[in-house]
Design a binder for these strands. Sequence first.
DNA 1: GGCACGATTTTGATGAATCAAAATTGTAAT
DNA 2: ATTACAATTTTGATTCATCAAAATCGTGCC
Lengths: 222, 222
Amino acid sequence: MLPSSTVENYLKAIYVGETHLAGDQKLVPMGQLATALGIAPGTATTMVKALAESGLVAYEPYNGVRLTPAGEKLAARVLRRHRLIELFLVQVMGMNWDEVHDDAEQMEHVVSDKLIERMDEMLGHPAFDPHGDPIPTADGQLAHRALETLLTCPMNTPVTVARVTDQDAAFLRFIESHNLKPGETIQVEARDEVSDSVVLIGRNDQRITIGARAASKLLVAS
Amino acid sequence: MLPSSTVENYLKAIYVGETHLAGDQKLVPMGQLATALGIAPGTATTMVKALAESGLVAYEPYNGVRLTPAGEKLAARVLRRHRLIELFLVQVMGMNWDEVHDDAEQMEHVVSDKLIERMDEMLGHPAFDPHGDPIPTADGQLAHRALETLLTCPMNTPVTVARVTDQDAAFLRFIESHNLKPGETIQVEARDEVSDSVVLIGRNDQRITIGARAASKLLVAS
DNA sequence: GGCACGATTTTGATGAATCAAAATTGTAAT
DNA sequence: ATTACAATTTTGATTCATCAAAATCGTGCC
C-alpha cells in the first residue's frame, strides 16, 4: 500500500497549500488544490474522497481538505526529498537553480531512502534548499523563520534575501541576474502604491525596480 | 508522444533479449519477453501489437518481436541512462554495486537529458558500468568486446574478470566477497562436469569453487 | 497423417487517474 | 426572501496497463 506518485503529489500540494493559507483555518479549498495540481476540479474531489478513505486527509464537502497526522508525515517526507534533491542537483551536480525543479519533481517519487540519506550526508544535513525553502527533517520537522516580504519589511535598512517563493525558471533567472538570490544583502529604497512597484538597492548600490507581485515573492530577514 | 515508462521497459527488455539470443535469428519470443518483464503472456502480446502500430518494433505473430531502428535507438537510450546511473551511484554516491539496480531502474525513466549529461561528464564518458556491462554512447553505439565465460575460457591461464551478467544482490555480494569483481585477475584451475562446478584461483592464490551456472555469469578477457 | 502439448493469442474484466459537462450547493446582494 | 453567480460535486466516458481463463495455433512424435 505504498502511495502512488499521484497520491504523493496530492498530499504535497495540500501540505504546501496549508502553509500558504491565512493563519487559523487550515482547510485547502478544492479549487486551489485542482489549480495547483493542474487537474480538473472534479478530479480533485474524487481523489480527495479516496484519500479520506485511506485516512490521509480530512475532507469537509464544500469546504476543503486538510492533512491528518498520517498524511502530514507522508507529505513532509516527499517535500524533504524534493528539496534535498534540488539542493543536491545545484550543489553537487552543478546545475543551475532554475533548471532543477522538474528533475526533483520526478525523482522525489522514485529514489530510495538510502540514496536520499547519502545526499543528506553529502550536503551536511542542510536546513534550506537553493530557493531558501526549509527542508523537513527526517522526522518531519520544519525549521521556522520569521520572514517578511519586500512589501512589508523595514525600509532603508539592510536586509538579507532568505527565500524566493516562485519556481518559474524565467523568474529565477531574473532574480539571479540582478543578484537577488538568497544570501544577498539589499535595501528597500521606496515603495509606490500607484505604480505598483518597489525600488531596491542591491549589490554595488545598484538600483532595481520590481513589481509588487514580484516583490511579494522575495522573503527577507532583518 | 514521448514513450511511457512501460514502453521504455518493453523496448529495453526486447533489446537485451535480442543480445541474449543465439547469433543469427533476432526474434524475441513472447514468452521470454513476458517472463523478463514479470507480466502475463497475454499482456505482452497486446502491448507488442501496440508498439508495432507505433513503428517501434516488428511483430511476427507466433514467432516473436524485434526492434525497428527507431525502437533500437530508444532502447539504447534507456540502457545508456540505466548504466550511467548505476555507475554514478557507485562512483559518486558511494553506494554498493549490489544496491543500485532498483534506483537506476526507476531513475532511467525520469531524469533529464541535462542531468544524464552531467553524470556522463563527471564520470569521464565511461564505456562500462560497475558490472562490466557496456554503456551505449549518446548515438546508440555499443562497445563490443570478445569475452568468454569461465566455462569456456582457457584454463590455467591468467584472465581478467570483465563482466558479471546477473543483477541479483545476493549473487553480487558473493562475487564481491570472493574478490571476483570486474578488474580482478583469476585462473580456472579445474572444471568438473559431474559435480557441475569450476575451481578458480583468485587473489592471494585463494581457491574458490563455484557452480557451472554461476561460472557462466562471469565473463573474462584473456 | 493425426494428435497432443506447449506457446501464443483472444476475450472479457479490472483499477487508477483523468476529463467534460451537467447538476447541485452556498453565499452574497438585492 | 429570492436570485444569481461562483465553487463544488456528480455523472458518464476514456485511456493505459494489467490479469485470468478460454480459444487457437504450430510442432514434434508415434
